[in-house]
């Protein structure tokens, strides 16, 4: 989604002189086209994420629309209080872009794994939180959200090739997108892990289980009505996110179910445990945390079997 991001950003910058790009010394082989086109609107602030958000706050108060860019963990966690006291308290249009949610930085280790970014961003009032599922949806989401009056957190995946079948790049703020229909189970996915969910739904269908698959990219504002419509139709709903099960999509869906008193079971797939010091690649880590296609197929089957048994 990084190239999709920069392509869209160039289009926006052509259109609007308020758009500026700030990075915390990241974006090799990504930002070159932007720098070439807009050398005076690109700022590498060095390895200083807090200052980057503070500077963006000052720029935004003066009318600019600054995009700040770093790896999801650094973008969200390192600068968190600056984000809260700056763009959020002042409701300024700063766009915090965090790249590489979940285990996308695999072998770089847990310091680079974005597994709490959505939870902390969701807690900020007035902060739009968007986690696109593929590069086409990332472009649509940027076009839909870049000019929001308040702050925005955009979680980008690294992959610029994978496509979630049936999504066709659709994005609507505060809405969820149904990408597959089935009557046995609903699976709701957030972010780039949606590709695994689509593969899992296809594998489940081979075994006779038909799943409805929903992509929830607009986490705040939450697609509450769309979620209700889905969960009301199913006894079991599975949420899938490359993120902690605390505070992210699983929590959001559970809140909707509990607050509306809906009688549906929510099975949350996501990160539940800290690492044990051993690591590996993204696929390995996703599998370890129950987020691979095979693991998701098994979890959905077990969840349905459990419902039938009970």
């Amino acid at each position: 989604m990084r190239r999709s991001f920069v392509r869209t950003l160039i289009d926006l910058a052509e259109r609007d002189p308020r758009v500026v790009l700030l990075t915390g010394d990241l974006g090799f082989m990504v930002f070159e086209p932007f720098i070439e086109r807009f050398p005076d609107r690109f700022f590498n602030l060095g390895v200083a994420e807090q200052n980057m958000v503070g500077v963006a706050t000052g720029l935004a108060e003066a009318g600019f629309v600054p995009f700040t860019y770093s790896i999801a963990t650094f973008a969200s966690l390192r600068a968190y209080e600056f984000i809260r006291n700056g763009p959020v308290f002042h409701q300024l249009p700063v766009r915090i872009v965090g790249v590489g949610g979940g285990f996308e930085y695999g072998t770089a280790g847990p310091s680079h794994h974005g597994t709490e970014d959505i939870a902390v961003m969701r807690a900020l009032p007035g902060m739009a939180v968007i986690a696109p599922a593929d590069h086409a949806q990332a472009a649509s989401a940027m076009l839909a959200c870049w000019d929001l009056p308040g702050p925005l957190y955009l979680r980008l995946g690294k992959d610029d090739h994978a496509i979630v079948p049936g999504l066709d790049g659709r994005f609507r703020l505060g809405r969820a997108e149904v990408v597959r229909n089935g009557d046995d189970v609903a699976i709701i996915a957030m972010g780039a892990i949606a590709a695994e969910v689509s593969a899992a739904a296809a594998a489940l269908a081979v075994g006779g289980i038909e799943a409805t698959v929903v992509v929830a990219a607009s986490i705040s504002p939450a697609p509450v009505d769309d979620l209700i419509e889905v969960v009301e139709r199913f006894a079991t709903v599975v949420t899938v996110e490359a993120h902690s099960v605390v505070g992210g999509l699983g929590s959001l869906v559970s809140e909707v179910v509990a607050e509306r008193g809906l009688g549906c079971r929510v099975v949350r797939c996501g990160v539940r445990s800290a690492g044990d010091g051993t690591g590996g690649g993204e696929a390995y880590l996703n599998n370890r945390h129950g987020l691979s296609c095979d693991a998701l197929v098994q979890i959905a089957r077990d969840a349905l079997a459990g419902m039938r048994a009970s």
């Binding site: 503070g54 500077v55 000052g58 108060e61 003066a62 700056g86 002042h90």
Partner: peptide
């Protein structure tokens, strides 16, 4: 009051952003 403050160590960054904005404009 141009900016809310209270948490120490944040004002200079915001001021630097405001100064950069003035220059860009």
């Amino acid at each position: 009051v141009d900016f809310s403050t209270g948490s120490l160590g944040q004002g200079l960054s915001v001021a630097a952003g405001a100064a950069l904005a003035a220059r860009l404009l």
